[in-house]
Amino acid sequence: MEIVIALAVGVMFGSGIWLILRPRTFQLITGLLLMSYAVNIFIFAMGRLSVDRPPITLSPDIDPSQFADPLPQALVLTAIVIGFATTALYLVIMIGARGLTGSDHVDGKEPRE
């Protein structure tokens, strides 16, 4: 499991790096999406992996080590929602810049060839 999660984070992050270095705005936004998945899973994994142990405590007498770490989960939950909001913001800037400059290059003008 650990190796799979590690590879998954690596593949998503690597694809993200490649994409955010591309010249077109849509590539950039796709890259940021992939990177945010990678980072969210990375932060989530800091609480270590656990299967079938959701942090739902049905009785007061419990052993905390038998539950998944809830703290990274709470952090990632808000991160997902905020990530959505920033994606929206970036999208609007993207189409706004495209409308204003006529180009979808990240610098707002086509590169000189």
Partner: peptide
């Protein structure tokens, strides 16, 4: 160059994640 950077970055994140998880 970008491809190398992407591969290196991805690899680094993978190693880091694995190092923490074990």
């Amino acid at each position: 160059l970008h491809m190398m950077l992407a591969v290196a970055g991805g690899l680094a994140m993978a190693v880091l994640t694995y190092a923490v998880l074990v």
